[in-house]
Amino acid sequence: MRNAAQEGHINVLYELIQNDQCVLEHIDHVPFLDTPLHVAVSAGNIEFMMEMMNLKPTFARKLNQAGFSPMHLALQNHKTQAVLRLLRFDKGLVCVKGREVLTPLHRVVQNGNVDFLIKFLETVFHLAIKNDRFEAFQVLVGWLIRSRHEAANRWEKELLSWADIDGNTVLLIAASGNRPRVC
């Protein structure tokens, strides 16, 4: 399985599943493990990664022996497409606590990757609205307004007008959810 994930051989994956229909379940029962998703992400095999997430979505939140989720590994290995695909698959992955209780969002801030920070913050804005967390949304908007960073205007435009995978902006989510305070 490790070789299939590393090399991106989807056909081999399905051969392994045909030989043992519970092979992915066996992997999922091990508490801390480099799953095939971890391996595929580290190797940058996007197609295999997407296939694995489709088959076993729980792998996306699983930590390996070093305490890292697939999103943590994608960031560490500079696999931009993997990060973006994982983010599209599940926005909540930016908040998965890993080693030293650090999330991928923390890692992006530590590394100073502004482009990923914007993408992650877009996700956080959407999560606040979708989960009816007005106070959290207020804090985020307040931070954005007080920001003196040279890119603050760009951030404001991008963060508040960014559409999620379904094409919904923060304002559209707020309006459709009857959240007038956000609007």
Score class of each variant (00 low, 15 high):
residue 1 M to F: 13
residue 6 Q to E: 13
residue 11 N to Q: 14
residue 12 V to K: 06
residue 23 V to C: 15
residue 29 H to M: 15
residue 32 F to W: 09
residue 32 F to C: 04
residue 34 D to R: 13
residue 36 P to E: 14
residue 36 P to F: 13
residue 37 L to R: 06
residue 38 H to F: 05
residue 39 V to N: 01
residue 41 V to A: 12
residue 47 E to T: 11
residue 49 M to Q: 05
residue 53 M to W: 04
residue 53 M to D: 02
residue 57 P to Y: 13
residue 57 P to L: 14
residue 63 L to Q: 06
residue 65 Q to F: 06
residue 69 S to D: 02
residue 74 A to W: 01
residue 78 H to P: 00
residue 78 H to D: 09
residue 80 T to L: 11
residue 80 T to M: 11
residue 88 R to N: 14
residue 90 D to S: 13
residue 92 G to A: 03
residue 94 V to S: 05
residue 96 V to F: 02
residue 98 G to E: 04
residue 98 G to P: 00
residue 100 E to N: 12
residue 102 L to P: 00
residue 110 Q to C: 04
residue 112 G to I: 10
residue 112 G to S: 08
residue 115 D to T: 10
residue 117 L to D: 00
residue 117 L to P: 00
residue 120 F to G: 02
residue 126 H to W: 13
residue 133 R to M: 11
residue 134 F to Q: 10
residue 146 R to I: 03
residue 149 H to M: 09
residue 149 H to D: 12
residue 151 A to I: 12
residue 162 W to H: 14
residue 163 A to L: 03
residue 163 A to T: 13
residue 166 D to Q: 12
residue 169 T to I: 11
residue 170 V to M: 10
residue 171 L to M: 14
residue 174 A to Q: 03
residue 175 A to H: 06
residue 176 S to I: 11
residue 177 G to M: 14
residue 183 C to T: 11
